[in-house]
């Protein structure tokens, strides 16, 4: 149903070239992995797709049944989790969920959110401030925050960072869910994360 198309994307970061003339298309049910050395522009590419960074050149478009989605409303169709994307530390996990539900116009259902908390192993900490969380716990919460509004396109920047094997199971779960109902792009160099993907793009070639 939804698809993503990236055409001739070029990005310079101050005077260094990150990537040039990058083009690809992502169809429903596909999972793409982006790999490359540190500083090769993996995160920047995800941020460009999300609309957080302007490309130096080229286009990113999303389509719904071949009808283009305007850039202003693209945010409803994208979910993103990245190390640089923080949650509110002064709020509890549930309050964070509540805020992101409300701001996206989803009816906030406490029971439903508690279920999700249980599923990511945070049910005991659900009412504690995120400031006191370990980095792995924060990462779990970030992951579910990204899929809260059921986005057709999921962007994951190093989804497994700080996660233990139980945490990796969550990532796997999320990605297989996404494969069934949407698309996903993963930026990572971890073998276990890249293995989830159907296709791989190497930015360091």
């Amino acid at each position: 149903m939804y698809s993503l198309s990236v055409t001739n994307l070029t990005k310079y970061y101050s005077s260094t070239l990150l990537f040039k003339d990058l083009s690809f298309r992502l169809n429903p049910g596909e999972v793409l992995a982006i790999i490359g050395w540190n500083g090769s522009g993996k995160s920047t590419l995800l941020r460009i797709i999300a609309g957080l960074v302007r490309p130096s050149c080229g286009r990113v478009e999303m389509f719904c049944k071949n009808a283009p989605i305007p850039k202003e409303s693209r945010r409803q169709f994208i979910g993103m989790a990245a190390p640089a994307l923080s949650l509110y530390e002064e709020l509890t996990a549930l309050e964070n969920m509540e805020f992101f539900c409300r701001v996206r116009g989803i009816a906030y259902d406490r029971r439903n959110c508690l279920n999700i908390m249980e599923r990511i192993g945070l049910s005991e900490q659900a009412e504690k401030m995120c400031r006191n969380y370990s980095s792995g716990m924060k990462q779990r919460l970030k992951l579910v925050q990204a899929i809260l509004h059921n986005p057709p396109l999921l962007l994951l920047d190093e989804p497994g960072c700080n996660l233990d094997s139980k945490g990796m199971k969550i990532v796997e779960d999320i990605i297989s869910d996404q494969r069934q109902f949407g698309m996903a792009v993963i930026a990572s160099n971890e073998r276990r994360e890249v293995d989830y993907a159907d296709r791989v793009i190497n930015l360091s070639k």
């Binding site: 070029t10 101050s14 130096s56 050149c57």
Partner: peptide, 9 residues
């Protein structure tokens, strides 16, 4: 002297 890639935008 500084990169002028703003031109592309």
């Amino acid at each position: 002297k500084e990169p002028r890639f703003g031109d592309f935008i």
